[in-house]
Write a protein that binds this DNA or RNA. Structure first.
Length: 873
DNA sequence: CGGATCGAC
DNA sequence: CTATGTCGATCCG
């Protein structure tokens, strides 16, 4: 508390009271004055754990300010001058790019929840009410606000401020319905308007306005529905009160009815004897309709009019050349008013001039306090101090400050849109048993998973948030290698973090009052395409829908079907094959003419369908059984656990030898392409065993381009493991290390991959009889895998390229296949697999910096998530 | 990346 | 009688 005195003239209590929303001194005569309100709040709040924590937070802010002031004092005039030049340069650029051509509208429903409750229960209309609970209020009506009752205030404090306060519980369903009604209206003016929460929205009516200029009057006329209002609100609605349409005195054009069609209720309506009944009806109708003009103000009045007609609720609005200004405008004349900033620079600057910085969206209580310490209270001062600010704040911050002080802002509603994280959290009375905490955690994961799935999102970072009974907040985040979206996946990560937190304070229990879960780091479109296949997919290629039957009731079922719906899991080979087929078709049509086009590997062919045709039909009889990926024996077991036991056995029996071999090799890079003779033999045998003879023939045909291999075993080897020492410093070295991983990991899985690959190659044989004929086009060698024309005529170079391509594909697929159902086996191999995963991880997504982890950690994180979906553990 | 903090409603 | 929320974005180390 005392430490604050150091910082200029800001006082300690300011921060706290500000938080309570009492500094705007709006307390009217019927309510309480500011002083009284503060006193009551203090009494109610003092000594509570909450209050203690607030004081602590205030002190932290004060320390920040202190640091900032020290930094300021150290600044040299030299630095300041330089900063001034820089800031001015940017200001000039910004000024030049100023765009006043858009008309942006911000609509804000007045005291939304409270207004809905009042509308639906007339008894509340004259009373001070708030919506929420004894522990927290969401909003209050204007009557209650006079007593200092605000949103985000606990109900029990509000009760002390205003003992007559009626607290209505939240009815979210209802608010959503009303919100929908409002949105229907808004959509007519801007189909791509942007809603913010339930009670706010931005519209860009630029285009609409232009169109409206030519509209006839009747298209801008609205009939006043009296019954509607009578039904919704009170029975006694008086004319001027009912639509405060003429009360927009603040607006620069106070005339509502530009065309002078305005008719007031003061005029005698049906009383005259001079009219026939018919004429009277017409007259009445005319009296009961309004016509809106074509200006922006008129349009917004029309919108507000229609909202009130439809819902019985009022809205405030702001009109300006950008979103930031529009938002500040809507605040200007609330409730039930509107304000416009004309689209010229002077009007904008006039508006900005004396505006307190706190009114600016994005500047909250902390930033306000920091700026205040620098003597900045208004936007003008914000501009004047631009050089100083550029040295004390982050780039994004001071750029934003400069924008604000120049009255600039975004006009693009779209880009404001896409979400970056999603979370859920819950407050409760103290929970201190681990058991309850875990189940709560799981519940949160379940809720969040549902929300995520609604929007089809998957994220890589899971954050656990904990607040203890002293209001201290802690967050723990963990980023995993594959994106999560199901309850199980999220919980697998969250549970671990929760456990370490619980263990951290043991033997004391965690005394929690809040827990939250968040998922962020969403996959972009590119990454979505490469989502891992589930183990079931792996075991039953091409039949995802049936596979889900194998795990009835499991939630991975959901996850799995959803995933296969939302994104076609195009494998590397699927893609290449599709591309190849297409380009073959092109070739047939275009003769050898369009060589350039054939380089395009993008394809509209649906690879999923193809896979179904090619592999699904062959596997049709296997639909209700699983094939062991190790021994290739069909397994009769209907449940995964039994199958896993089998796979365990298989791996134990056959894999040990391979592992032993590899662990002896010191330099994995040199040995990268080396398969033990045993392995090779096994791989080949397996291929044969699985009736892949034809496929191997295909491989054999690669020979044509090489004409040095003779046996099919060697042909196979050629494709899979062509050795070449000088490759270390290129992409190939990657591949090399990956190959090493494959070896270490499980040659069985690779062999399956190859088998699959060849199977697919076989499918393409009809259109492309063999590699030899497919490979040589117009006397140019074309890689049968990537379909890209090769510059070289040297066959061995060409072969090397094909190798690389093939390996790349295998690696890509392997990352999907790496999910082995036997955890212990994988953990044994975690070093090399982990190295691979680490490499993938470090190089994934767009050049952002990555946190380096050990291979083991990568492996573990990866598995933790993947295994959560299976009944292995 | 992880943790804490800020701002909006 | 008790009793201070929920969400997303951004900054800092």
């Amino acid at each position: 508390m005392d430490s604050t005195k150091k910082v200029g003239n800001t006082s300690d209590d300011d921060g706290f009271l500000l938080r309570m929303g009492l500094n705007d001194n709006k307390a009217g005569m019927q309510g309480l004055d500011k002083e009284k309100i503060n006193k009551i709040i203090m009494e109610a709040t003092k000594g509570s754990r909450f209050y203690e924590n607030e004081l602590k937070k205030d002190q932290q802010v004060n320390q920040r300010i202190e640091k900032m002031m020290q930094l300021k004092d150290k600044m040299t005039s030299q630095q300041l001058l330089k900063a001034q030049l820089q800031a001015d340069k940017l200001a000039l650029e910004l000024e030049e790019s100023r765009d006043l051509s858009c008309t942006i509208v911000h609509i804000d429903m007045d005291a939304f929840y409270a207004a809905v409750e009042m509308r639906d229960n007339p008894e509340l209309k004259e009373k001070p009410i708030a919506v929420g609970s004894m522990s927290m209020l969401s909003t209050s009506n204007y009557h209650a606000r006079r007593f200092g009752v605000r949103a985000a205030m606990p109900g029990f404090i509000a009760k002390r401020l205003c003992p007559h306060l009626t607290i209505v519980p939240l009815n979210f369903k209802k608010y959503e319905e009303v919100s929908k009604e409002v949105r229907e209206i808004l959509a007519e003016y801007d189909p791509s308007f942007m809603p913010i929460g339930l009670d706010e929205a931005y519209l860009n009516i630029t285009e609409y306005l232009e169109e409206r200029q030519n509209w006839p009057e009747d298209k801008r006329s609205y009939f006043i529905k009296r019954e509607n209002i009578a039904k919704n609100g009170k029975q006694d609605i008086t004319a001027p009160d009912e639509l405060k349409l003429n009360e927009d005195a603040h607006s620069s054009s106070p005339i509502l009815f530009e065309d002078n069609t305005s008719i007031t209720e003061e005029q005698p309506v049906a009383t005259s004897h001079l009219y026939t009944e018919e004429q009277r009806d017409q007259f009445t109708q005319l009296l009961n309709s309004v016509v809106f003009g074509t200006s922006a103000e008129e349009v917004v009045k029309e919108i507000r009019f229609r909202i009130e007609q439809k819902t019985g609720l009022t809205a405030s609005a702001g009109i300006a050349p950008n979103m930031t200004l529009a938002k500040m405008c809507s605040d200007q004349n609330k409730p039930n008013g509107q304000f416009r900033i004309s689209p010229d620079r002077q009007s904008v600057m006039d508006f900005i001039k004396d505006l307190p910085i706190r009114k600016v969206p994005g500047i909250g209580k902390v930033t306000e306090k920091m700026l205040k310490a620098l003597g900045i209270l208004t936007c003008t001062e914000l501009y004047q101090q631009r050089a100083l600010l550029s040295l004390l704040f982050s780039e994004t911050s001071w750029h934003n400050f400069l924008d604000v002080s120049l009255g600039l802002g975004s006009t693009d509603l779209e880009k404001y849109g896409e979400r970056k994280s999603m979370s859920t959290e819950r407050t409760f009375s103290e929970i201190n048993t681990a058991e309850e905490q875990y189940s709560l955690c799981q519940e949160l994961c379940r809720d969040l998973a549902q929300d995520l799935q609604k929007e089809g999102l998957k994220g890589k970072t899971v954050t656990l948030k904990l607040k203890n009974v002293n209001f201290e907040v802690k967050t723990r985040a963990s980023t995993v290698l594959s994106a999560v979206s199901t309850e199980e996946e999220i919980f697998a990560v969250a549970k671990d973090m929760l456990r370490t937190e619980i263990d951290g304070v043991a033997p004391h229990p965690l005394r929690l009052r809040l827990m939250g879960i968040r998922v962020s780091g969403f996959l972009n479109e590119e990454e979505k395409k490469y989502q891992q296949r589930s183990i079931i997919n792996f075991l039953k290629p091409g039949k995802p829908a049936n596979a889900s039957l194998l795990q009835p009731g499991k939630s991975s079922h959901e996850h799995f079907t959803k995933a296969s719906e939302t994104s076609h899991r195009e494998s590397f080979f699927d893609k290449k094959r599709a591309a190849r087929q297409q380009s073959n078709q092109e070739l047939l049509i275009n003769k050898p003419a369009n060589k350039q086009n054939s380089h395009d590997i993008k394809s509209s062919v649906n690879p999923m369908e193809e896979t179904n045709n090619a592999i699904g039909s062959e596997n049709l009889n296997e639909c209700h059984s699983l094939t062991c990926p190790v021994c290739f024996e069909e397994q009769r077991e209907s449940d995964l656990e039994a199958l896993n036991r089998h796979i365990d056995k298989c791996l134990n029996g056959t894999l040990l030898k391979d592992n032993a071999e590899i662990s002896t090799s010191k330099n994995s890079w040199e040995n990268a392409y080396h398969f033990s003779p045993d392995s090779k033999k096994k791989i080949f045998e397996m291929c044969q065993k699985n009736k892949m003879n034809k496929a191997v023939d295909t491989a054999q045909s690669t020979k044509v381009a090489d004409n040095s291999t003779s046996s099919s075993t060697e042909a196979f080897h050629k494709v899979v493991a062509n050795t070449s020492k000088e490759r270390e410093h290129s992409l190939l070295s990657e591949t090399a290390s990956n190959m090493c991983l494959e070896q270490n990991f499980s040659s069985k899985i690779i062999s399956l991959e190859n088998a699959e690959h060849f199977e697919k190659s076989e499918c393409t044989q009809e259109t492309q009889p063999s590699y030899s004929s497919g490979a040589i086009r117009d006397n140019v060698l074309v890689c049968p895998i990537c379909n890209v024309e090769q510059k070289t005529t040297d066959l061995s170079l060409f072969n090397r390229h094909v190798d690389v391509c093939l390996n790349k594909g295998i690696i890509q697929e392997l990352t999907e296949q790496i999910v082995c159902p036997v955890k212990s086996q994988i953990m044994e191999n975690s070093k090399s697999v982990g190295e691979y995963l680490r490499h993938q991880y470090m190089n994934s997504t767009t050049g952002t910096k990555r946190y380096d982890r050990s291979p083991q950690a990568c492996m573990y994180l990866y598995l933790k998530v993947k295994l959560a979906n299976y009944s292995v553990l």
